[in-house]
Design a protein around this nucleic acid. Structure first.
Lengths: 188, 188
DNA sequence: CAGCCAACTTGCCAATGACAAGATATCGCA
DNA sequence: TGCGATATCTTGTCATTGGCAAGTTGGCTG
């Protein structure tokens, strides 16, 4: 609900973008509110007005992230394998959002905007998880397995633990891996 | 190679323990070198002598973590499902180590001690991964899948994203989930 | 045009990370 | 035993930061 056209225009969004960029460059604790203010050309306390503190900025990033993730997953429906691949694609494409999202200690998990996006993303996962072999017997486990393998692959890729060649395509690398769990059922 | 019996005795280990504890209480950026120094009863600059900076402390934590992980995995050999369960058990039992380990931006990935432990842990994964169905065709993918599902489950559990009841046992919850990938082959 | 309020700014303080220089205890060695 | 070398720790310092309080600006409304 940011009203555009004030002193700066849309400082809120500017700050979030700058934060994502800064974190991408210098890591999760290589940024400061004051640096964001400088980048945006405002005074050192301006960010605090919109976000309160650092956790506020990270809350906004996480909320954006869950929104983007939900979008990506919904677009891949109803092909569940494609949804898994999309999960990895989102994570690798937005590593800062992804990293923040799954460290709730960094932000305010009870934020309203955030929880809405979070719920939306979780729904897509639950809906499509019956494509996993053996899902009928224990549907909860199938959801967990699918979520886990996509999340794990994405996390490991981002962290660099997989030591892939720099030009490797994470999305194409993920597909055969996810297929080992989901099988060749493909859609539905 | 810390020689014990100096002024403090074993400040290096004391600081690492205090850091793990502090991070566990207040999160990854809720601690300071000065706080660790106070807890250990030394001057504010003492930690810097042993670790240089914050990244140095986190490097030590990550190295310890990879060592502990390698121990846990080796103990579970040759049952690959058990190794997966052990992976989750380590992560949930040492969430601070686990979180740090897979955020290389926080520490110095080229540290010697660290790389040794890291390599040892990676070896165990590679060795046992042929228990995954379809592993013969694409052994690399089977390793990735197994690592991903265990890593993903652990990460999601620690982050709280799974919204499990507080008394739930992560290790027992993981077993049927991992079995969906590994199958009932059990050992070797 | 008068007042109101959102959107900033200015000023401030304790805490921190990092560095430099000094102090001290232990150890090797004559 | 004594002495110097060295690892370990302390003291002092400085720029930077997060966060708070209080002031200011500029558009909007009635």
């Amino acid at each position: 609900m940011t009203k555009a056209g004030y002193h700066h225009g849309d400082l809120r969004r500017t700050i979030v973008s700058a934060a994502v960029e800064a974190i991408g460059e210098s890591g999760l604790d290589g940024w400061s509110l004051r640096e964001l203010a400088r980048r945006a050309g405002v005074s050192h306390a301006a960010p605090a007005y919109h976000f309160g503190d650092k956790a506020g900025v990270l809350t906004a990033i996480a909320a954006d992230g869950f929104g983007l993730l939900a979008d990506a997953l919904e677009e891949a429906q109803p092909d569940f394998l494609a949804a898994g691949v999309a999960y990895v694609g989102f994570a690798v494409g937005h590593p800062v959002h992804f990293s923040v999202m799954f460290q709730p200690a960094l932000y305010r998990p009870d934020d309203e905007t955030l929880r809405a996006a979070e719920t939306r993303a979780a729904e897509v996962l639950r809906k499509g998880s019956n494509a996993v072999p053996g899902a009928a017997a224990r549907p909860g486990d199938a959801t967990l397995a699918a979520w886990s393998i996509a999340h794990g692959f994405a996390s490991l890729w981002i962290s660099g633990a997989l030591r892939m060649p720099p030009d490797a395509d994470p999305v194409e690398a993920a597909r055969p891996v996810l297929r080992l769990l989901v099988g060749d059922h493909g859609s539905q």
